[in-house]
Design a protein around this nucleic acid. Sequence first.
DNA 1: AAATAAAATTAGATATATCTAAAAAATAAT
DNA 2: ATTATTTTTTAGATATATCTAATTTTATTT
Lengths: 220, 220
Amino acid sequence: MMLTAAEENYLKAIYHLSDEGRKSVSTNDIAAEMKTKPASVSDMLRKLAEKEVINYRKYYGVNITPEGKKLALQTIRKHRLWEVFLVDKLNFAWDEVHEVAEELEHIQSPLLIQRLDAFLNYPKFDPHGDPIPDEFGDVRARPRIALNEMEINQAGQIVAVKDSSAAFLRYMDKVGAYIGARVKILDKVEFDGSVEILVDQKKSIFMSKDVASNILAIQS
Amino acid sequence: MMLTAAEENYLKAIYHLSDEGRKSVSTNDIAAEMKTKPASVSDMLRKLAEKEVINYRKYYGVNITPEGKKLALQTIRKHRLWEVFLVDKLNFAWDEVHEVAEELEHIQSPLLIQRLDAFLNYPKFDPHGDPIPDEFGDVRARPRIALNEMEINQAGQIVAVKDSSAAFLRYMDKVGAYIGARVKILDKVEFDGSVEILVDQKKSIFMSKDVASNILAIQS
DNA sequence: AAATAAAATTAGATATATCTAAAAAATAAT
DNA sequence: ATTATTTTTTAGATATATCTAATTTTATTT
């Protein structure tokens, strides 16, 4: 099954939207995600349905098929491998890579991706902390680590808190930490285990070991 | 000035054909080079002329403009840098890189090319021995001579092949000739123009004039 | 349940890139 | 200098991907 670049982009969008717990994805949602018009989406859905990568019932939104999911994951794999390449090898900042990876992901060459994967030492996560599917589309469960257990200079993304009491969440809010925040360990104080972290590459915050051990991140 | 991938490919073809000593390049020549139909070429020439990258007088062929030449050289630069990447970093064989580089060359990101160039240590020649234009389009060309035109006992180094089809590259591989090989002309048969050459001071190989004329060397 | 609002689709355009078949222009041959 | 041949261009299709405007279908409100 061969998809055009546009089809790959739509399928990726549908995959991402499906992944947010919806039972089906609407035309308008896809249009918003793709920054395009609903009319264009309708046209494309017909094409994707013909290729059997989505199930499409007019006026009732779409579901991705197993074949579609496999293809979407392959595109995501390519995108994230290229992002690793751009950051690790070409010294791009991690917020500069998306647009270029968006182009590179459509290069059609299984051998290229296989070799790139090896060259990058089979990375499991991209620079944003998102997992890289393997060549079969399998995604590794994200190993979580408490902030106080991360090494200095290690970057990651906050994905959960152990203590989800209102008090703790208020604290999170107050210091500007939140689920999804990109973090980097700036310093660790040996004496008391407190840590200094950089949030979203701009805000530096201090927290006690106790607090840090309640915040879970995935490492980049 | 922004060109589409198709326009870049046509412009590159016109540049290459121009470089063969013609005063102007014909529609048929371009169609042959691009493996497309003359009618398609006519359409594209109109577009390229509108963008002022070629001078086009109907029925009389085209010339590339200075601006067109600059753009063609930029595309060639990207293509050849990617080829170096594929061979040096991803361990592609030098005869496997063309098709992939043909896709990669159309990625639009000046920063990417700048960084790639640095990562590859500013290479001056691609794996086929062809020079890589700098960012201003300047090319450091080496005077090259076909093996069948070298004198007996003349020594040199293979730097490029004219015909880089997979079939020819496989042949090269099979007989033990390769880009970078040291060669010396042992004998030339006047009757059919075939030549005998010594490769790397040990292996003697025999090749027809046809083959020899496709292999380019710099003379020592 | 009828009226209204929202969402989705179709109809009809535009732009790119290609093709075949027909026409026009340039070149070659008698 | 006509005629024939080759080359090139145009006219008209097809396919992709997008748009606006109009229409249809579904969902919501009264």
